[in-house]
Write a protein that binds this DNA or RNA. Structure first.
Length: 480
RNA sequence: UCCUCCUUAGCUCAGUUGGUUAGAGCAUCUGACUGUUAAUCAGAGGGUCGCCCGUUCAAGUCGGGCAGGGGGAGCCA
């Protein structure tokens, strides 16, 4: 059998030696015409393969280049050198795939993340991206495990949606009509979507929430975890045009239940990564340390990556209302000394990222849950509070990346909901199916959306969201 | 989309007040060495200085436009 191999992770974690093994992987470096650092992606650590001098012909040795794929059979022995416990003394080396050293772009040295982004198809083979995507996997798995263990149903909401009333952002159009101007038109010159594949105008989903609410009205506890698309021209380190979102929706939960669920969830998945990817997180911590050294003293982070993650897991998130946050900001020295670009002067406007950062990074120094925002800066489906001015919304702000969760208790009262829709000029006929849940057995319920890539950013410490998704989609970029 | 900075060898970067033939480290190739840890040592090859236009006797260097990238802002997750 060809694939009778042992993964390098298993081989290295096994203390045993003096047994035969076959490994396959990609050459990271070939030192001294004798020592191959081999990696198969199962761990960031390389296996040292020793090709004893004189045992292999010159032709084979020449083909062991950085990036080449090889199969090695030999004996696992206690290492004669420092730096590793065991090594593989090669008996046979087979070149599975050559790699032209003059053309292979990865070198055994540090590359810039910007350069690696241009070769996203090869960047998996670096230590940094190996670690990032193993952590990404663990987080994805932990998410399913968390909800499954709690009895939630994993709901697949549609990728193609017809509703354009959600207001979550600019949408990508989905059409099978010709784009050369020959598509059927209405009398007023607009495109006649009755002729289109679905017989109506459709888009890529911007959120699975509304559909999630429908299922929560039957299963009580559901979550979605899937791709989401926003056609906004956002060019930042924390926005993507295609990203993955987790959206739990829970019947009978109020705002406080919602906060409790979100906080427990975030702590659980972070702890899972800490427990299952200690080496990857330590590697990422080290590269962050290097990065921090380049910064001026007072911009440096007070905690290392692992400390930061453990701090989040072991401390309660700070919970306060929008109104309380405005007070803190207004009374802050930062505001009084006019150090904010946008000074806080009154109640009712949305917070800018500098304000959120101040609250999270300077004032509380931990994740913050802000609640009960003014109704005018939030969505139509959020539940109206008794004061008539605020809604039962919550945003979770994380150090370094800002808003990681946005959620709310939903408006379950038909009259209040339709009133809000009218105010915000949202046509009811488009959302008849959504309003049916309020017509037939409506109940209090709540949910939130968590941006998966922002979570991965937080856990890996990566500064740019484009480096935590395998093939990022953002304005002017859809290669690979 | 706005503000700001950047673009010089495969990669990471130097390049002085505009002035001969544009440099270094790493990588690559050739050779030496051989228990190395991003091996080491010696030598060699490698450049339309992002693209276009302008100023000037002369532009990598100054000015304008465009493209791409970084950081920040807005929109948000």
């Amino acid at each position: 059998m060809f694939n009778k191999r042992v993964r390098i992770k298993e081989l290295l974690s096994n203390e045993a030696s003096n047994y035969d093994a076959t490994v396959m992987g990609w050459v990271r470096t070939f030192r001294n015409n004798q020592f191959i650092a081999l990696n198969d992606g199962s761990t960031n650590n390389n296996l040292q393969v020793v090709a004893t001098l004189g045992n292999f012909d010159e032709k084979t040795l020449k083909r062991i280049t950085t990036g080449a794929c090889i199969k090695v059979t030999g004996e696992v022995i206690p290492s004669l050198g420092k730096g590793q416990k065991v090594e593989l003394k090669a008996v046979s080396i087979e070149i599975l795939g050559d790699s032209d050293a003059e053309k292979f772009p990865l070198q055994p040295k540090r590359h810039s993340l910007e350069f690696l982004r241009e070769i996203a198809h090869l960047r998996f083979r670096t230590n940094t991206f190996g670690a990032v995507f193993r952590v990404r996997h663990s987080l994805a798995f932990a998410i399913h495990k968390f909800f499954n263990d709690k009895g939630f149903i994993y709901l697949h909401t549609p990728i193609i949606t017809a509703s354009d009333a959600e207001g979550a952002g600019e949408m990508f159009k989905v059409t099978a009509l010709p784009l050369d101007g020959t598509a059927a038109k209405n009398e007023d010159g607009s495109i006649n979507y009755k002729e289109d594949f679905f017989g109506r105008s459709t888009n890529l989903t911007v959120s699975g929430q509304l559909e999630g609410e429908l299922a929560a009205m039957a299963f009580s506890d559901i979550y979605t975890f899937g791709p989401t698309f926003r056609a906004e021209n956002s060019n930042t380190t924390r926005h993507l045009a295609e990203f993955w979102m987790i959206e739990p929706e829970v019947a009978f939960n109020d705002l406080e239940d919602n906060m409790n669920l979100a906080e427990e969830f975030i702590k659980y998945v972070i702890q899972y990564a800490i427990d299952n990817n200690p080496e990857d997180i330590e590697f990422l911590a080290q590269r962050l340390d290097e990065e921090e050294k380049q910064k001026p003293q007072n911009d440096r982070s007070e905690m290392r990556l692992l400390e930061k993650l453990e701090f989040v897991v072991n401390n309660d998130f700070e919970r306060l209302t929008y109104t309380e946050a405005i007070e803190i900001l207004k009374e802050s020295n930062h505001n009084k000394k006019k150090k904010f670009q946008y000074l806080i002067d009154g109640w009712g406007t949305d917070l800018h990222s500098e304000h959120e950062r101040y609250l999270v990074e300077k004032h509380f120094k931990k994740p913050v849950i802000l609640t009960n925002y003014p109704k005018d800066i939030k969505s139509f489906y959020m539940r109206m509070n008794d004061d008539g001015k605020t809604v039962a919304a919550m945003d979770i702000l994380a150090p370094g990346i800002g808003e990681i969760v946005g959620g709310s208790q939903r408006e379950e009262r038909m009259d209040k909901l339709t009133e809000r829709m009218a105010e915000m000029k949202i046509p009811q006929e488009e959302l008849g199916w959504y309003l049916d849940t309020r017509r037939f057995g409506s109940c209090p319920h709540a949910g939130f959306g968590l941006g998966f890539e922002r979570l991965v950013q937080f856990v890996t410490g990566m500064g740019n969201i484009r480096d935590v998704i395998p093939f990022p989609r953002y304005p002017k970029s859809a290669e690979f």
